[in-house]
């Protein structure tokens, strides 16, 4: 009785049953990871330390940290000015998130398989994943070719990547929705726009909100970097100067505390929002 379907069953040389046979995909992933781990190990042993004395380096780094965190002091701006600078950076994050999420909402609806159709969905998702694959900084630099380095390039480039990111997040949230609800409303004579506003958006609102907020946090971090890299102004530009030109570690300390304070406030707001919208999941 044991020999009926034996031809489908794979066994090891010791005649033990294999439960997860090795597929080409698994083999590929395994070899890529092995290769990367090997590179990391080799890289670690071949670092050119340029005659750096490790003990001294650690001591100096700690000294730097001490000055940064325990003796923060800014000479080029006072606290009020610092706060305005942080607000500028926040504004950059806010506007790019707002613009990005607006476009992403429409594109996300069009990219959800259960709302439109497979073809349109795949087409949008392909373009969007291309946009997402290129880092935000690069988009800003690409737009800087036309607009010149500055706030405009930063706003456009950051919004662009935000769209790419949020379309994926939004459309996946929409696709999570139970198709039965859509069907029920369709069966009672509701049309698409009504179904979107009465069933799809209410069902996914909390997900949309938390993805958007998450992206806002990312955009804040990017906005700091853009101040430095793309001359978009705000606190990032001063960070760049303090670090690159003045080597003023104590001013960097002030900036770090300001950024940290903003991050903390955003976290508190996020918690508050979640409790308002009862996210139990």
């Amino acid at each position: 009785m044991m020999n009926a379907k034996q031809e489908y069953i794979r066994r090891t040389k010791k005649n033990k049953i294999i439960t997860n046979p090795l597929t080409p995909a698994k083999l590929g992933i395994f070899s890529i990871f092995s290769f990367l781990i090997l590179l990391t190990i080799i890289g670690f042993f071949t670092i050119n330390s340029k005659g750096m004395v490790i003990n001294k380096a650690i001591f100096e780094a700690l000294e730097g940290f001490k000055n940064m965190f325990f003796r923060p002091k800014s000479t080029r701006f006072d606290l009020a000015e610092g706060m305005i600078l942080v607000l500028q950076t926040l504004a950059l994050a806010f506007i790019t998130t707002l613009v990005g999420s607006g476009f992403a909402l429409i594109l996300g609806l069009l990219a959800a398989k259960n709302i439109t159709n497979e073809k349109l969905s795949n087409a949008i998702k392909m373009i969007i994943s291309f946009i997402r694959a290129i880092p935000t900084v690069l988009w800003v630099l690409i737009f800087a070719i036309g607009a010149g380095l500055g706030a405009v390039a930063a706003v456009v480039g950051m919004s662009f990547h935000t769209i790419g990111y949020l379309v994926k997040a939004y459309s996946e949230s929409f696709e999570e929705i139970d198709g039965g609800v859509i069907e029920a409303l369709r069966a009672s004579g509701a049309n698409w726009i009504q179904i979107i506003f009465q069933a799809i958006l209410p069902s996914s609102a909390t997900y949309l909100l938390s993805w958007t907020f998450f992206r806002f946090e990312i955009n804040f971090a990017v906005a700091v970097a853009m101040g430095a890299a793309a001359g978009a102004g705000g606190i990032g530009f001063h960070l760049f100067n303090a670090a690159g030109f003045y080597h003023d570690i104590r001013e960097i300390g002030v900036i770090v505390y300001l950024v940290l304070a903003v991050a903390l406030i955003m976290e508190l707001i996020a918690i508050r929002l979640k409790s308002i919208y009862h996210i139990h999941e």
Binding site: A190, N191, Q194, Q198
Partner: peptide, 12 residues
């Protein structure tokens, strides 16, 4: 919803 205009239905 089946009896409503798009706009009224959309805003409930």
């Amino acid at each position: 919803l089946g009896y409503k205009s798009s706009l009224r239905g959309l805003f409930g």
